[in-house]
């Protein structure tokens, strides 16, 4: 575990230094230069942090749901602890993604919040997390709490795709899509892509480490109560 922690620390430090430190030029000539993405410019650096947050809030939601399903099948309270801890971290990352996105929007769009489809869908994800915790806190019996929370997260998960489908029909988005855009074109050069993917991998590692810690803390609480 200590090796993992050290590697993760070095990895994340490197990602942060490279993401913030490498210069941005119009025509990158050497490996250590980022290209300037039109309309984003220096503000593009946020994607090294903002995109992993948004990615993790979805990863956490899915892992919470998967362990919820596992709980419903096996009725093992450890799975519920895993599910709830994942949801807790998901809420944290979802909040961070919303906050970083809003700050970026202030400088790019001129306002913190304008109900862009991406903002609306992350707002709904926040609402689902909030409702999930409100539900958990309203039930005292552990087994009941575990199964009802699992059912709720599954119901929320099956209706989420509809949201992704309906939003673009109502509003058009101004959200930049440097990787997943309709033209399928990558606006990044290799260096930028490597730093971006390393950041994604590093944050995912960080998430799994935090999740493990959280599960251990919650399990020891559970054992002390029983």
């Amino acid at each position: 575990m200590n090796v993992f922690k050290t590697v993760l620390f070095v990895w994340m430090t490197a990602v942060i230094v490279l993401a913030l430190g490498l210069p941005m030029v119009a025509q990158p000539s050497t490996w250590y230069q980022f290209p300037i993405i039109p309309a984003l410019e220096e503000k593009a650096r946020i994607m090294f942090f903002h995109v992993p947050m948004a990615w993790l809030s979805v990863v956490a939601f899915v892992s919470s749901m998967v362990y919820g399903i596992k709980y419903l099948r096996k009725k093992n309270l450890d799975d519920d602890v895993r599910s709830a801890s994942a949801a807790g971290l998901g809420f944290l990352f979802c909040f961070l993604a919303t906050a970083t996105g809003a700050i970026w929007a202030k400088f790019s769009w001129g306002t913190y919040w304008n109900w862009d489809p991406r903002q609306t869908s992350i707002f709904v994800l926040l609402l689902i997390y909030g409702a999930y915790f409100a539900l958990r806190s309203a039930i005292e019996v552990e087994e009941k709490r575990a199964s009802l929370a699992a059912v709720y997260s599954i119901i929320a998960a099956v209706t989420m795709p509809f949201f992704m489908f309906i939003m673009p029909r109502i509003l058009s988005s101004l959200h930049p899509e440097p990787i997943l855009n309709t033209e399928g074109k990558v606006h990044m050069n290799t260096t930028m892509l490597i730093v971006f993917l390393s950041s994604l991998a590093g944050f995912t590692g960080l998430y799994f480490w935090m999740w493990r810690l959280q599960v251990r803390i919650q399990t020891s609480h559970l054992n002390r109560i029983n």
Partner: peptide, 14 residues
């Protein structure tokens, strides 16, 4: 309403 709203939002918008 807290639990229902996120689930019903796609339906209501449509």
């Amino acid at each position: 309403p807290v639990l229902s709203f996120p689930i019903l939002l796609p339906l209501l918008l449509t």
